[in-house]
């Protein structure tokens, strides 16, 4: 890695298009991603991925030097890479994120 990068970001293999967080970042923090200063809009935990370079819609995303799926939209450098912009080339990913969001929204309504 040549350009300065936040020490919490790991590059796993030279050709990778994503970096991996080895410690959490807070919402609103500014971090350096290979020389580029980006504001992280929401808190990200350990193990989350950040784009290292621009990734076009439909392009394979590379981690560990191997494809881990295809970008479902264009991804800017420094952006969080996860379910919203990366899809499997094999089977779709099941998550409870929507269910959790709906549950928490309903709880918020009850408290309000």
């Amino acid at each position: 890695m040549t350009a300065p990068t936040d020490p919490r970001l790991l590059l796993l293999a030279p050709g990778d298009s994503v970096l991996v967080l080895r410690a959490p970042v807070e919402a609103g923090e500014e971090i350096l991603v290979e020389g580029l200063r980006v504001r992280v809009p929401k808190a990200l935990g350990m193990g989350q991925k950040i784009a290292r370079r621009p990734i076009a819609a439909g392009e394979k995303v590379i981690k560990y030097g191997a494809p881990i799926g295809s970008a479902s939209e264009a991804i800017a450098p420094g952006a969080h890479v996860h379910l919203h912009n990366l899809k499997s080339d094999y089977t779709p990913t099941h998550s409870l994120e929507e269910a959790r969001g709906a549950f928490e929204a309903a709880q918020g309504d009850r408290k309000a």
Partner: peptide, 22 residues
């Protein structure tokens, strides 16, 4: 219709079955 991939894998930052596989 499902990969060998649980909801908690996604919460932990894994996005696809091929990423989990590697």
């Amino acid at each position: 219709g499902y990969g060998s991939f649980a909801a908690g894998n996604a919460e932990g930052g894994l996005t696809t079955i091929e990423e989990k596989s590697l």
